[in-house]
Lab assay of single mutants.
Amino acid sequence: PDLGLTQLFADPNLIENLKKNPKTSEMMKDPQLVAKLIGYKQNPQAIGQDLFTDPRLMTIMATLMGVDL
């Protein structure tokens, strides 16, 4: 199971919303991170391994779920 990750990354406004959010806007200036996020739309399971190697993803996930870290 993808634990709902498919829906989190399926939002067509995902990148724009993250660019507008004060907690994630600075991160979204990294083209490699943006490319990763776009890739998760097609393969949400890929985030599982990346969560352990890129701490920014935890902040992004929390933001998408509405959790304040």
Rank of each mutant, 00 (worst) to 15 (best):
P1T: 14
D2T: 15
D2C: 09
L3C: 12
L3Q: 13
L3T: 11
G4E: 13
G4F: 15
G4Y: 15
L5V: 09
Q7A: 14
Q7L: 11
Q7P: 06
L8R: 07
L8G: 02
D11P: 03
D11G: 04
P12F: 04
P12I: 07
N13Y: 10
N13D: 12
L14D: 01
L14V: 09
L14S: 03
L14Q: 03
I15P: 01
I15C: 06
E16M: 07
E16Y: 05
N17L: 12
N17T: 13
N17S: 11
L18G: 00
K19R: 12
K19T: 11
K20Q: 12
K20E: 08
K20N: 14
P22V: 06
P22H: 07
K23G: 06
K23D: 05
T24D: 00
T24E: 00
S25Q: 10
S25E: 09
E26M: 08
E26G: 08
E26W: 07
E26H: 11
M27C: 04
M27G: 01
M28T: 02
K29D: 09
K29S: 09
D30Q: 02
P31T: 10
P31H: 08
P31V: 08
L33G: 00
L33M: 06
A35P: 00
A35D: 12
A35H: 06
A35G: 06
K36E: 03
K36C: 04
K36A: 08
K36N: 04
Y40V: 04
Y40Q: 02
Q42A: 12
N43F: 09
N43I: 03
P44Y: 04
P44W: 08
A46T: 12
I47A: 09
I47K: 03
I47S: 05
I47Y: 10
G48E: 15
G48I: 15
D50F: 03
D50K: 03
F52H: 13
F52G: 10
T53N: 13
P55N: 09
R56S: 05
M58W: 15
M58P: 06
M58T: 10
T59K: 08
I60H: 00
M61P: 00
A62Y: 10
A62I: 12
M65F: 09
G66Y: 06
G66I: 06
G66L: 08
G66Q: 09
V67Q: 13
V67G: 14
V67P: 11
D68A: 02
D68G: 02
L69M: 13
